[in-house]
Amino acid sequence: MLFSIYRYNPETDKKPRMQDYELNIEEGSDIMLLDALIALKEQEPTLSFRRSCREGVCGSDGLNINGKNGLACITPVSSLGKKVVVRPLPGLPVIRDLVVDMQQFYRQYEKIRPYLINNDEPPARERLQSPEDREKLDGLYECILCACCTTSCPSFWWNPDKFIGPSGLLQAYRFIIDSRDTETSSRLADLDDAYSLFRCRGIMNCVDVCPKGLNPTQAIGHIRSMMLQQGL
């Protein structure tokens, strides 16, 4: 099987290049793309990429695979055709080969204050939540911050310093809708500028790529309607 992989070492290379590698995969067997990359790394020890859990829960190995963002560890090579083109996630600075600098992504995440804030007196034991209220967090809390969505979003490419991006906005909604959080209106107010939330143009690339099947566009829509209700 043929792999064309993005190679770039900013310390020694003038510009990035695509390099082809051949890998024998036994007839009738299937492996995940991450395993293929690990096998290729034996041929070519300088090949760099991130990975950790190798089962789609840590979010380290988001890559651009045949033009579409996804996690290498849960992408079977059988689903990828004869030639596999692997590039780093788009829109973020490349540190080396398939490793990108996630700072801009995390900075946006930090802005939405990704933790519960509750200004009420703490109860003796813990803050309880009804099963119905807990249910509202489904489809939100599962995000593993892999950045597949945000780096596929054109609005983030053009304004990575100002637009929170789908992943951060999904998380923002996760705290806005949490019944135990008391900062709902200040969280909404924080997003009411021309960029942070409203730069989303509903292109839905984010929904298309999320490896956890989440729907950031829908969360963005919910935030917008909550703002509208507060503003009317």
């Binding site: 009411d192 500028d193 021309a194 942070s196 409203f198 917008r224």
Partner: peptide, 16 residues
């Protein structure tokens, strides 16, 4: 964030 001075509504929600 600084309000966008040349946008019409001066807030994301207004513009929207």
């Amino acid at each position: 964030m600084v309000a966008s001075t040349t946008s019409l509504g001066r807030s994301g929600l207004h513009d929207w």
